[in-house]
């Protein structure tokens, strides 16, 4: 023990340091000036962090510029999802005119209590239908509220223009 411990001999206090009062007055000056300094607090709900483009927030579903859901219910994201947070029931799409073009999800749930924000669903998606949004402030009063259903996901995702107009060519 003794061999491994080296006592550090410090300089003895000077007389001025022994008086303490100069240091106390100096300290009071420092704290008083701090009152008028700029504050670092961010007023959260009103002010938010600017997150970078590659930020992985809540996964959402997007629609194309013709307001059509892009998801084709291939279930790749459901398959790749490590915590199995995604649940999909594939079905015919509601629009009978284009029913021959694609299929779509009847049910698309993401359990945000399970989601680990890894972004694998976004990587796996062949249709660029699911994205990691910048939304990081998720909350709910019940567990059920935090299971995002299809409507919530589309609402959060909004519209993302797609250069490939596959619907008009079929």
């Amino acid at each position: 023990m003794a061999a491994n411990v080296k006592p550090v001999r410090r300089e003895a206090q000077t007389f001025k340091e022994r008086l303490f009062l100069p240091a106390i007055i100096k300290g009071l000056g420092i704290t008083f000036r701090r009152i008028f300094k700029k504050k670092v607090t961010m007023q959260f709900p009103e002010e938010r962090w600017e997150v970078r483009d590659e930020y992985r927030g809540a996964p959402v579903l997007v629609k194309d510029d013709e307001n059509r859901p892009k998801c084709v219910a291939c279930s790749l994201c459901e398959y790749v999802c490590p915590p199995k947070a995604i649940y999909i029931v594939p079905d015919e799409i509601e629009d009978p005119e284009h029913a021959h073009v694609e299929r779509g999800p009847a049910v698309f749930n993401i359990n945000m209590l399970r989601c680990i924000f890894c972004g694998l669903c976004e990587e796996a998606c062949p249709e660029e239908a699911i994205f990691m949004s910048k939304e990081y402030a998720l909350w709910g009063a019940t567990r059920a509220e935090l299971i995002h259903d299809k409507e919530t996901l589309y609402e959060l995702g909004g519209i993302r223009p797609d250069p490939i107009k596959k619907w008009s060519n079929k």
């Binding site: 411990v5 080296k6 006592p7």
Partner: peptide
């Protein structure tokens, strides 16, 4: 009292 207590600077291992 005028000096601060010995301080641990590094312990082998």
């Amino acid at each position: 009292k005028l000096e601060r207590a010995p301080q641990l600077v590094g312990v082998a291992g």
